[in-house]
Nucleic acid binder design. Structure first.
Lengths: 212, 212
DNA sequence: CCGGACCGACCGACCAGTCGGTCGGTTGTG
DNA sequence: CACAACCGACCGACTGGTCGGTCGGTCCGG
């Protein structure tokens, strides 16, 4: 039997992800999670020191996966701006495929109260860091004009977040429906700056397509 | 003594706004609010049927005020697009002046759990309605090219939301710092569409300034 | 027979909401 | 004007249910 440690821990994380998605932090009881894991409450507390720690672990796992997806999507692109666009699409479509995950990551955390604040800052910081990096490189590469990339990154993240959250609640418009529009207005908002300052020296490749 | 009804109710609302801003829904006790109002718990329950009702009343009040500000800012503009821009600025700067209000309105609600979902949909719907209306009129007026205005409105709202929330937690960048950048990328994202389809018949007045 | 994994009854803090009671003002009555 | 009957606003001790967390114990593989 021994050395089920990681297996069981994983089972708990999976069950918790689902439970938190359904009911939020407060409304999910430790007994619920124990139940879904076919574990007793005591069994659960053998693996996690507290409910709060469990929640953070769930969030961290999700965020890490998503950030990695975004990063690798971005890395497989030629130009920085395309990379940012790809990261954006990746996040949007991934969350769009997994409504429950989106809900845990973007909504349910707040119900933890003040303990969540630090975590939210950290998670959103990771994402906006990825985007900001790409934007900075795009500026350096002369793809877009200089601008406060931190604000832009945040704004994009917020736009994506709102589209996803609204979809989580409303069911419409779906992220994949929204993607082309988002691409147009977000990336387009920067390209215009480029047009203002036409000092680019890109090697003639066609610029980022503005629609699918 | 009689007929303090409204006065006391108002006092409770004000105190609750502040308490919820500080500690969120769950962490704020009815006793806290009673305390801040120099009222007993029983006294409080004379005026509100439940803690939940109180919270909704607080949120509604704040949202109504803010929506009205946005609408009147928008109404005092000449072109629809300028109106949308003005509404955007108004919301951003108003929230930027009142960090606590921003927190109650945009963050703390989630800590109520599922009961808040309907409310969030409603509140954000009100705001995005204002923006969407303006955008629709801007499309009709030929100021911008046709686009899915619902998605755009949501995206803008999300961008503003994220900037404000990030500021609430991080303290930087401040909404007023972010405003010019937001204006550039958001409104700019639409103007570019205009440039693609140069069929406007605006009466020669200079277009919306892209920076202050 | 040791100890890691797990059990589940139990504890106790916590808190929304209740309820019997108080008290100052107002209204009605003679 | 006096006095009673009434009422709206408010008080605060109490309750009842809920849950996170604990702890003494069990079970099984090595």
């Amino acid at each position: 039997m021994a050395v089920q440690r990681e297996t069981t821990r994983e089972r708990i994380l999976v069950a918790a992800e689902s439970a938190f998605a359904d009911k939020g932090y407060h409304e999910t009881l430790v007994d619920d999670i124990a139940g879904r894991t076919s574990l007793s409450k005591g069994g659960f507390y053998f693996h996690f020191p507290s409910k709060e720690d469990l929640f953070f672990a769930v969030i961290d796992r999700l965020a890490a996966r998503l950030v990695q997806r975004a990063e690798s999507a971005s890395a497989s692109c030629q130009s920085p701006l395309q990379g940012v666009e790809a990261a954006l699409s990746e996040v949007l479509t991934t969350l769009g495929r997994r409504r429950r995950i989106a809900k845990v990551l973007l909504v349910q955390g707040y119900s933890m109260g003040s303990a969540f604040e630090k975590k939210r800052v950290e998670i959103f910081g990771r994402f906006s860091g990825v985007i900001q990096d790409g934007l900075d490189r795009a500026v350096e590469a002369g793809e877009i004009a200089p601008i406060n990339t931190e604000v832009v990154a945040r704004a994009w993240l917020g736009a994506v977040n709102e589209i996803v959250v609204n979809w989580v609640y409303h069911g419409t418009p779906t992220p994949s429906e929204a993607l082309p529009v988002l691409r147009t207005i977000l990336v387009g908002g920067l390209e215009r700056l480029d047009a203002d300052k036409p000092e680019t020296d890109s090697p003639g490749s066609d610029p980022v397509a503005t629609n699918d």
